[in-house]
Design a protein around this nucleic acid. Sequence first.
DNA 1: TTGAAAGCGCTAACAG
DNA 2: CTGTTAGCGCTTTCAA
Lengths: 344, 344
Amino acid sequence: MRKKQVTIVDVAQEAGVSYATVSNVLNRRDVPLAEETIRRVEEAARRLGYRRNAAAASLSRQRSNELGLLLPGFGEYFGRFAEAMERTAYAHGYHLSVFSSSHHPELEQRHLEMMLQRRVDGLFCHGLALSPETTRLIVGDGTPIVLFNAWDWPPDIAIGVVNPDFRGACRGAVRHLYDRGCRSFAFAGGLYARATGVQRRLGFADGIASLPETVASAVLELDNVAHAEWPACIMAACAGGEPLGFVAFDDTIASRAMWRLQEQGIAVPERVKIVGVNNDSFAAHCHPGLTSIAISHERHAELAIGMMVAHLEGRTAAEAGTLDAAPSGERTMPLELIVRGSSA
Amino acid sequence: MRKKQVTIVDVAQEAGVSYATVSNVLNRRDVPLAEETIRRVEEAARRLGYRRNAAAASLSRQRSNELGLLLPGFGEYFGRFAEAMERTAYAHGYHLSVFSSSHHPELEQRHLEMMLQRRVDGLFCHGLALSPETTRLIVGDGTPIVLFNAWDWPPDIAIGVVNPDFRGACRGAVRHLYDRGCRSFAFAGGLYARATGVQRRLGFADGIASLPETVASAVLELDNVAHAEWPACIMAACAGGEPLGFVAFDDTIASRAMWRLQEQGIAVPERVKIVGVNNDSFAAHCHPGLTSIAISHERHAELAIGMMVAHLEGRTAAEAGTLDAAPSGERTMPLELIVRGSSA
DNA sequence: TTGAAAGCGCTAACAG
DNA sequence: CTGTTAGCGCTTTCAA
């Protein structure tokens, strides 16, 4: 077994004080301490290479100071989000552990179960995770949960939700394309991300409906269409001589479509103007640059962590009778359209 | 504070047995148990919604059954690796927590410190993390560490290392380009990833040296060169009428270069043939497709986790006098060249 | 086959 | 200002 660990008892002995005192020194609580004692204890701890045992501490203090983040995967979108979340949690004095289900429901449930067993102080969970089985794991457990990218979630499961405004952004994208001269439109979805796809589709429809004139529009399902067929599918939506406005589920689909169209000699942005979603790194480096909808992961993280921390602190404050539990709810985050060559 | 948690004591009471028995039942140890008791306890646990407290368990049993993974960031490369690691750890009966330092040394140290405080059973750490400060945190702690993508690490810090063979792969890339007719070569690095960049550079040099004839070659540093200048920089390395063979640090640099070259009317692959590294998802969807060096994250993960588990189990076996500590060391993983249009 | 009891390392009253 | 002490929830001998 691992080399016997150094405990506060050892440190106490080394410093010649009681081990409660060591705990006091090391946690710098509001307790008054003699300068000399502090020095001696810190010195002893350093000398012995003492490192606090987090399990013992959480057990004793009934909180772990740890937050958990459950992601569907570490793709570019969620990867960036995770990084922002880690930084933000850190800034708020918490530690964030990240788990990705790699799109495996089984792994996802297991991750969830582990976080609950570890009594994380709070949990961040993506909307797709809320299958009936998963939900059952969560419901009734006291752990506060903040959902993200969750548009259809069981009520009373979370203390709050924060969603990027894909709907509003797609609405805006249609308008942008119209302003650039498009008079017929197509949207290409991906079924694999249901809820988030629906939002985009709704936004696309909103956009079409709010145009000053009636235009032709189509919603495409390219999931089961061979890439080579994409241009034909897409161009079928084009009516009249004006360019077609094409809104894609994400940048991957957008760039793939762009390439296939160009390959067939269909000029982008002259014949087809394209808008993607996510502003992935390659959007700026393909040719032409891909107009895309960008999200500020920093702000997203700030909102999510903020909600959680407010709840956590609010709760302890409430216990102290200082404050009512902090209010929460559903927040929507505005997105930004980054215009590049593909819609020029 | 959180709703009082259900403990084994509650379960014991509900089932009418001692709480030691509950523990026995729930952990299905080698202890003989009466069928009836098992049933009663499980039933009670379910009814009460019992969930084991992981902190208490780790504290008591002196191991957490948890592994930690420290990444420099959640980019495509490490993101995929992290997913594979999670799956593999799971398959081996461990739980893996992932942390990314977002390239912030401060966050990185903190993550490390937390994992050590949490007494993870084992730690996976990328090579770039081994700054003097970080190394100091680790050294002397009993936690077993497996390093990955670490070419210059302090001895005695890790129980093993597993590295992708970027060097061999880049050597092969040069050969591939030569076979496709290139007679002058250039490599473009990125300083931001030192060790891994050095490996590629060495491989490039190896490749040049092993060619059947002497050729012109150049190593470029494009970090501080404006993108618009890249074509000029790159083409300066081109000698003679044959196409230039261009090996890039990664697919991002490769695709960016490809675009800039094409923009200036320099044909790829006719004038310049390009090979990238990482086989990022867009490599298959840019035009022309980008030839790239692919890594099997699955195999990488299997090697890393395997090393760790062997050590962990070997150690407990050794304690039991069954086995010597498992041997480990440095493993190199072969990579694969995926040939696409950019080097046709 | 079950239970009593001694910790695991640390925190948090509370008493001195 | 410092020390005593009673847990936190669970695991693990060792007796019964």
